[in-house]
């Protein structure tokens, strides 16, 4: 699959301060998370990808288009939901979303039709004729999402999409992001400082700190790998259970009395463990998969402040 975003030695300076420092990586996932503490350079990276800031060195490619030469083509295929309040106060939601669709190149009638659809899609159908200035914070977030997807972009960039949302609003936003991801017509780049949002929606995560990449993680791969790592608690005499597991190709380590940690070898399923235990008259009292949460990954990454990919 064509990389969604490629960074090649990207460096950005603002007001003579280096904000992004030599970023190099290739991100191919359908949903990419951008994580980092405040001031890490997440929003600057997004703004640079959209051409709002010029790179001082290196370059980046969005869906194969170089940000130095193909900015117009990038902007035509990208939808952007900014972090802060961004709207036109004295416009109705439908007029606002329509003008944004028209500016993306849709003919007037198609823009109007898509504006209605986008507002219904985000759940603002009944409020679409209200002025944006009268919207609550959560509704403004949804209106921003509507304008980002109205022209059917190939990549949607969401900067802190759940900012200011109450728990039901957040759940709704996460659900919509998942639905978009599953529609397979769009890729998503989600920037957030909320680990849970990223964990629930993203396949790949790029963690930034002080303008540098400190960790890259393919969450899908990690989730698969975690399924091979098992913790067991047994009851009964050993009867060569560990040896039998090792003969199956599993790597085992005793983690305490009657507690085992193991990595399942290829082709070995959990039912094989039960069969083996049953044959040796051993009870399996507890069986856990290892689950490295994104929080663990993030905290480890933060410890390696000067790490590079």
């Amino acid at each position: 699959m064509e990389p969604t975003i490629e960074l090649a030695g990207l460096e950005v300076q603002l007001a003579k301060r280096k904000i992004l420092d030599n970023l190099t990586c290739s991100l191919t996932g359908r949903t990419i998370g951008l994580l980092g503490p405040n001031g890490a350079g997440k929003s600057t990276l997004i703004n640079t990808l959209l051409g709002f800031h010029k790179p001082s060195q290196g370059t980046a490619r969005v869906l194969g288009e170089d940000i130095r030469t193909g900015l117009d083509r990038i902007r035509a295929t990208v939808g952007f939901m900014p972090e802060n309040d961004s709207f036109i106060a004295n416009m109705t939601a439908v007029a606002f979303v329509r003008i944004m669709a028209e500016l993306s190149g849709l003919p007037s009638e198609a823009a109007l039709e898509r504006a209605h659809e986008a507002l219904y899609y985000v759940g603002l159908g009944e409020a679409r004729y209200r002025k944006l200035g009268t919207y609550s914070l959560g509704m403004k977030q949804l209106a921003k999402l509507a304008q980002a997807i109205v022209h059917g972009p190939k990549l949607v960039i969401l900067d802190e999409p759940t900012n200011g949302l109450d728990p039901p609003g957040r759940q709704r936003m996460i659900r919509m992001i998942r639905e978009m991801k599953e529609s397979s017509e769009v890729r998503l780049l989600i920037c957030s400082h909320l680990l849970r949002d990223i964990e629930e929606t993203c396949e790949e995560v790029l963690i930034l700190k002080q303008g540098r990449i400190v960790h890259y993680s393919n969450l899908e791969e990690e989730r698969k790998a975690n399924l091979r790592f098992v913790e067991l608690e047994t009851h009964g005499e050993d009867n060569g259970f560990i040896e039998a597991l090792e003969q199956l190709g599993c790597e085992c380590a005793v983690a305490g009395e009657r507690r085992l940690k193991m990595v399942l070898s290829e082709g070995i399923e959990i039912r094989d463990l039960y069969k083996l235990a049953d044959a040796r008259n051993i009870q399996l009292r507890r069986l856990n998969y290892r689950r490295d949460s994104l929080e663990d990954i993030f905290l480890k990454a933060m410890e390696v402040a000067n790490g590079r990919l």
Binding site: L50, R75, D85, S86, I88, N90, M100, L103, S104, H151
Partner: peptide, 17 residues
């Protein structure tokens, strides 16, 4: 002025404009 006051410029300029 309203576009600037409501921070609407990023929405215009993230499009081919």
């Amino acid at each position: 002025a309203p576009d600037l006051a409501n921070n609407a410029l990023p929405l215009y300029f993230c499009r081919p404009l």
